[in-house]
Design a protein around this nucleic acid. Structure first.
Ligand code: FES
Ligand code: FES
Lengths: 160, 160
DNA sequence: AGTAATCCGATCTGCCCTATAGGAATAGCA
DNA sequence: TGCTATTCCTATAGGGCAGATCGGATTACT
């Protein structure tokens, strides 16, 4: 058995989301830009690694940065207009791939010829959760209805 | 940007599913056990690699094997009672993890404290697709209603 | 000038994915 | 008994990338 899970939320992605949530909180409080150091110490993230991740987020246009004294990072848009899907794509690229290709680019011989439909459904299902959940929503604990429904199902919290 | 996608269906998983579909077809046709060589040549898979994968599937109890002349592999249960989720778990372990841990085992500091709910929803969403799609369903092109709905949405087949 | 940040490139460690090789064990058949 | 086809097991190689850190260059404010 391999060790790479089909769905693996990497440290980089996890850190990126948590950093973005910190920036979202700062946006609400109307305080100025937040330094990497501040985020790192409050969320217990490795500082240098975090710096690299914030660079990715800046290059993707999700955050703005200010250099020099009293500089730091801030969200480029209102937290309600940034989805987790945006963050995922900024640090990891496309949400879902099959052997390094986009799901709909796979071609198969029978009897596997209906597989692309399943792969596309998997990706669509991910998008429904990640593209409709915003930073503001996570911050306030107000998630989309269907996300709440998914997470509150009987054994959604149990292993399988 | 990293290269590991959040959802990455690996070669091993892809091969496993295609091999299982071949065995499902053989089950319908009531022919005997299928050799690794036969599967490999018909689905264009690397034979030795496939052998290792079939070993995983056997250890997980999804397929049975017969050694010696005219031996090969066969599904251990009817194709309608084996889900893609079963196959995924057999070759890759748990469907979804966050930094190597189960989604509900993550603990966060505010303002990230609502994240576990989202992670659990992501996993639940995956389960809804993979655990309810069976080999028989993929073989016949008869997928669950909500899977068809997901895959037939307007831009489900487009990049984003 | 001094200070506090971002920014950039290089580097290190180890793991694990993909794939192959070689042969031992097994089962049917002539 | 020997022949053949096949699973089964162990070992191995190559490459790539995740995770993380260092040192310094650059920028901006006071
Ligand atoms: S490749 Fe089979 S145990 Fe992992
Ligand atoms: S770590 Fe930033 S480009 Fe990948």
């Amino acid at each position: 058995m391999g060790k790479n899970r089909p769905m693996d939320i990497s440290a980089r992605t996890d850190y990126a989301v948590r950093a973005m949530l910190s920036l979202a909180a700062a946006q609400v409080d109307r305080t100025g830009p937040v330094s990497a150091e501040a985020i790192a110490s409050r969320q217990a993230l490795p500082k240098k690694f975090l710096e690299a991740i914030l660079s990715d987020l800046r290059r993707s246009g999700l955050v703005t940065s200010t250099r020099g004294n009293a500089g730091g990072y801030a969200l480029a848009r209102p937290a309600a207009q940034i989805s987790l899907g945006d963050v995922f794509r900024a640090v990891d690229g496309p949400l879902a791939e099959v052997r390094g290709l986009r799901p709909h680019d796979m071609t198969y011989q029978p009897p596997a010829d209906h597989l692309p439909t399943v792969w596309v459904a998997v990706r669509a299902s991910l998008r429904r959760v990640l593209d409709e959940t915003t930073l503001a929503g996570v911050l306030a604990g107000e998630l989309p209805e269907h996300v709440v429904a998914l997470s509150s199902a009987p054994d959604a919290w149990r292993n399988r």
